[in-house]
Design a protein around this nucleic acid. Structure first.
Length: 635
RNA sequence: GCCGGCGUAGCUCAAUGGCAGAGCACCUGUUUUGUAAACAGGUGGUUGCAGGUUCGAUUCCCGUCGCCGGCUCCA
């Protein structure tokens, strides 16, 4: 694929970067330096730690390279010549491997600018002087070939644009992004906190944030009722046995909190003096009975003999649930089901816990405990298609209501070359076809991506692009033929024979935490009235009208409005400013005039001063706005 | 988990190998205000935590915890 002019510019800039680095640090070994969506980087292996001061030096050296106006010259060579050049310039360490990656028959080329020559498919701008606006941004560690078993190189990130104005705009956008970062706004607006004493990645929802979450949950619950879902509640833990049956433990052991071992089991193994290794082995082992059952239901050796131990050695314990499905499955299987009962749709705001690596945690968007707006649908083969469509429609309604219209849909299919998938290929074909058909009904562009499926079935993900261009995987709908077999689920069909239901997992928001995080940034804290923790603020201009203000406060509260009264002795301007900074949608100014006419002067955060109106009329307007879940008017 | 950077008042940020400071917020008083900051005073700190070097460490060193930017990962 040919590079766009901007990619070409950035790629050239990364060569200039490498040129400068080699001038300053001739011993540096280079790996690769491609353009990215917003800039470029170059991965460099060098013994000294690069610092931000080094960045400034490198940037200064880059300016010289650019001022030298070096032409970029392309040279096509044979594989042998290429290896020879790489050896000559002392860059064997990574470049020989990169050379080996080039498939036979493809052209092998070098690009040279000044003294610097690099194995590179191109393309480049003609002269280094074409690079007019660039900036080095940061240094980061990056594993060679993205594999954590390889050496970690130092990656220098930078960006470049065609003009200085565009570069300045880009840097300005980065600054704006920082201003609407949910971690900053979450602190400023007191939406959530994370406390070390509670734990990393564990969100404490403060009163204000809880209102937003509760409103979202109310919203989604309303939609679920319309669509025939049943609400359920299940506990935060489940026995290890349950997750051994489902296959989550120990298969995903690395990303789970350690199990809680029952006191009796713990006492027994302490008495036996078991090592930690032996303890883990016993925890992960299953009974012969379970192995036999699961293997029979799934029709293959899902649980190998090495994991089977005598019953007397097994340890009992509980797992903080990493998923809600096993609990919902147990509700489904708690009574006989007829085909007439299907589909059974069980929904829960279910909190799950996963052991994310510490370096991965990020505000509300990557956490260790989170609440999925989860549901599991148990249906017949024939119902998979229509149910999928229903799920997708739900996600669409939600995103539209919130004004999140910039999203794409990804149909995750199995990777034909991988053996990690469970279930028989026939079912996979059917499920993939159902996903594809359902996606078509959305009227939104979608991509099919092999390798993106879950191990138990294909899925449809909604990838939302936020205001500053980042993509977030939020809503997801997944088809599952695996768990119904592992749990031996059945329903009685019209033929009076047992049949295996199909499960659909779906979560329109994904998790409340991530979704709220993205939503905070989406609105930049300016929530629509229905979500705003504080919907209106009464601002008396002097304490002469405090009594009137108190009266309105009581009336508004009685009408269900989230309202406060600012009775500080500040001047009006200061109160307005405070309300603006706290992003309250409506500020109601009260003075003598208003008190006489039982009115309020309305200042809308999105539209400014709107003049006076009767208080009752305002209440009606706000209530309607919240009820219809209207989006804030554009400024 | 890995690489790098950073941890000073509730927030934003100063400062120094020698008594830790400002603005905002908060409290008190004065002011009674008409659409983005009235005035004055006051409270607030084991400088993330734990060691070491030193007469003396917030500053230098080691460890640890956390945060930030990446990498890896995300059923």
């Amino acid at each position: 694929m040919p590079m766009t002019p901007l990619e070409e510019l950035r790629h050239s800039c990364s060569h200039v970067l490498a040129t400068a680095v080699l001038r300053l640090f001739p011993e540096a070994k280079l790996d690769i330096g491609p353009p990215t969506e917003t800039g470029f980087y170059y991965d460099i292996d060098i013994d000294r730690k690069l610092t931000t001061e080094d960045l400034a030096r490198i940037e200064a050296e880059m300016k010289k390279v650019i001022d030298e106006n070096q032409p970029f010259l392309r040279k096509e060579v044979s594989r042998e010549e290429a290896a020879e050049i790489i050896r000559k310039i002392g860059q064997e360490r990574y470049k020989l491997g990169r050379l080996a990656d080039i498939p036979a028959g493809e052209a092998i080329s070098f690009y040279q600018n000044g003294e610097f020559i690099d194995l590179c498919a191109g393309t480049h701008v003609r002269y280094t002087s074409k690079i007019k606006a660039y900036k080095l941004l940061s240094i980061a560690g990056a594993y060679h070939r993205g594999d954590e078993h390889n050496k970690q190189l130092q990656r220098i990130y930078g960006t470049a644009f065609a003009t200085r104005e565009e570069l300045a705009q880009h840097l300005e956008r980065l600054e704006q992004a920082k201003q609407r970062d949910h971690r900053k706004l979450g602190k400023d607006l007191k939406l959530f906190v994370i406390d070390d004493d509670v734990g990393q990645g564990l969100i404490l929802w403060t009163p204000a944030g809880s209102i937003i979450r509760q409103e979202l949950q109310n919203f989604i619950s309303e939609e679920l009722r319309k669509q025939g879902y049943s609400q359920v509640f299940t506990p935060h833990i489940g026995k290890l046995e349950l997750y051994k049956t489902s296959g989550h433990f120990p298969y995903y052991k690395e990303s789970q909190f350690s199990p809680v071992i029952e006191n009796e089991s713990l006492a027994r193994i302490l008495k036996e003096g078991c090592s930690c290794g032996e303890m883990m082995a016993r925890l992960e082992a299953v009974s012969g009975r379970l192995a036999e059952q699961v293997n029979q239901r799934t029709g293959k050796t899902t649980i190998g003999p090495e994991r089977v131990k005598p019953d007397a050695q097994l340890l009992d314990g509980f797992l903080l649930k990493p998923m809600n499905c096993p609990h919902h499955i147990k509700i489904f299987s708690s009574q006989p089901r007829s085909y007439r009962d299907l589909p059974v749709r069980l929904a829960e705001f279910g909190t799950v816990y996963r052991w994310e690596q510490s370096g991965e945690l990020n505000g509300m968007t990557r956490v260790r405990g989170f609440t999925q707006d989860d549901a599991h649908l148990f249906c017949t083969e024939e119902q998979v298609g229509p149910e999928m469509i229903g799920c997708l429609a739900l996600v669409k309604v939600i995103l539209t209501t919130l004004g999140m219209t910039d999203y794409r849909v990804r149909v995750g299919l199995r990777d034909p070359d991988s053996a990690k998938y469970t279930g028989d290929p026939e079912n996979w074909d059917k499920a993939e076809a159902a996903c594809r058909e359902a996606a078509k009904t959305l009227g939104v562009p979608f991509t099919e991506e092999p390798g993106e499926a879950a191990f138990y079935g294909p899925k449809i993900d909604f990838v939302v692009r936020d205001v500053i261009g980042r993509e977030w995987q939020l809503g997801t709908v997944q088809v599952d033929y695996n768990l119904p077999a592992r749990f031996d689920l059945s329903y009685i069909g019209a033929d009076n024979q047992p049949h295996r239901p199909v499960m659909i997992h779906r979560a329109p928001f994904g998790s409340m935490e991530r979704f709220c995080g993205v939503l905070i940034e989406h609105f930049g804290g300016d929530f629509p009235a229905w979500l705003a923790p504080e919907q209106a603020r009464l601002v008396p201009i002097s304490d002469k009208v405090n009594a009137y203000a108190e009266e309105l406060l009581a009336l508004a509260k009685a009408a269900g409005v989230r309202v406060t009264l600012d009775s500080h002795s500040d001047k009006l301007g200061a109160k307005i400013r405070r309300a603006e900074l706290e992003k309250v949608p409506y500020t109601l100014v009260l003075g003598g005039k208003e008190a006489e006419t039982r009115s309020v002067s309305v200042r809308s955060r999105s539209r400014g001063d709107e003049g006076a109106m009767p208080f009752d009329a305002f209440l009606e307007r706000l209530t309607a706005e919240a009820k219809t879940r209207a989006l804030p008017a554009k400024r």
